[in-house]
Amino acid sequence: MSLRGLNPNAEVLNKTAALHMNINAAKGLQDVLKLVGGAGDIKLTKDGNTLLKEMQIQNPTAIMIARTAVAQDDISGDGTTSTVIFIGELMKQSERCIDEGMHPRVLVDGFEIAKRSTLQFLEKFKTPVVMGNEPDKEILKMVARTTLRTKLYEALADQLTDIVVNAVLCIRKPEEGIDLFMVEIMHMRHKFDVDTRLVCSIFHNIGLGPSLFS
């Protein structure tokens, strides 16, 4: 039975049209995420995860890409927008190759080869962070600075880098790890973001940890 037999209103596309529709869905999602952080009617935020969760996405390919990006954020806490833009760029390049006559199967095989090479490179390139009794504070600062700069403007991210690292080390216990519930964020009215300060409570041992006044 044909698709139209199941649903007379169904839109039937040939394989080429369907392929380009899926590519356009990826490119369209990429264009939307590029707007994140700018003034617009959609959302004023640099958090791609927030935007993706609030969008009403209909295209199955775009939904799959959005779920991949959200899963990235759930695991690492960042990279949502980068994931979508990266996939969109891959689709743009794929469309060029397809228009020149390359079979999609060849592109898929190429992606698999690139993935394996990337994972091999990351295994060699990655630097382990040894916490121990005396953690490497400089490495922790690099991690914090890199993460903060994806959400904040550079000057504020650099200012908060020391604050974040010191806050984490303040509540860290070598045997038990880090209890983030011991961090309290207090929003101070009539203050600027650059006025943010770290206050480490002297009552840490009875359960009162550091506070971020912002």
Rank of each mutant, 00 (worst) to 15 (best):
K27E: 04
L180V: 12
I23D: 05
F86G: 01
F203S: 15
A17N: 10
G88C: 00
L44V: 10
I63Q: 06
C200W: 04
I75W: 01
D162K: 07
Q58R: 08
Q93H: 13
A144V: 06
I113L: 13
N133W: 08
I23L: 13
G177D: 05
E54S: 09
R116M: 14
E11L: 11
Y153D: 13
E89Y: 03
H103I: 03
R149E: 15
I139P: 02
E112F: 09
M182L: 15
Q159L: 15
K173C: 07
G177W: 03
Q30D: 09
Q30H: 11
T127G: 02
K92V: 09
I98V: 06
L13C: 06
D193P: 10
A10M: 07
M91I: 04
T196A: 10
I75F: 08
H103W: 01
I63L: 08
M186H: 12
K43E: 11
L212C: 05
A114N: 05
V32G: 01
G28Q: 00
M182R: 09
I87K: 05
L169G: 02
V165H: 02
Q93C: 09
S214Q: 09
E138Y: 14
L107H: 01
Q93Y: 10
I87T: 03
T146Y: 05
M21R: 09
T16N: 12
G40I: 03
E138I: 11
M186N: 10
R96S: 14
G77A: 00
Q58S: 12
F111M: 13
K124T: 10
I206M: 13
I178A: 07
N205I: 10
I63R: 07
K46T: 09
L119V: 11
I98D: 02
R116D: 12
D109R: 15
A26K: 00
Y153F: 15
L156F: 12
D193A: 13
L212G: 00
S94N: 04
V168R: 00
L51T: 07
M142V: 11
D136I: 07
Q30K: 14
D109K: 14
P135F: 00
V168M: 13
T196Q: 06
S2L: 06
D109C: 13
K126A: 08
E89I: 02
V164H: 04
V199P: 04
K124C: 11
C170R: 10
P8D: 09
Q72E: 04
L156M: 11
H190S: 15
D136T: 07
A71I: 08
N133E: 15
D158K: 12
G110K: 06
F111W: 15
T83V: 02
G77D: 02
V183H: 02
K151I: 05
N24E: 11
V199C: 12
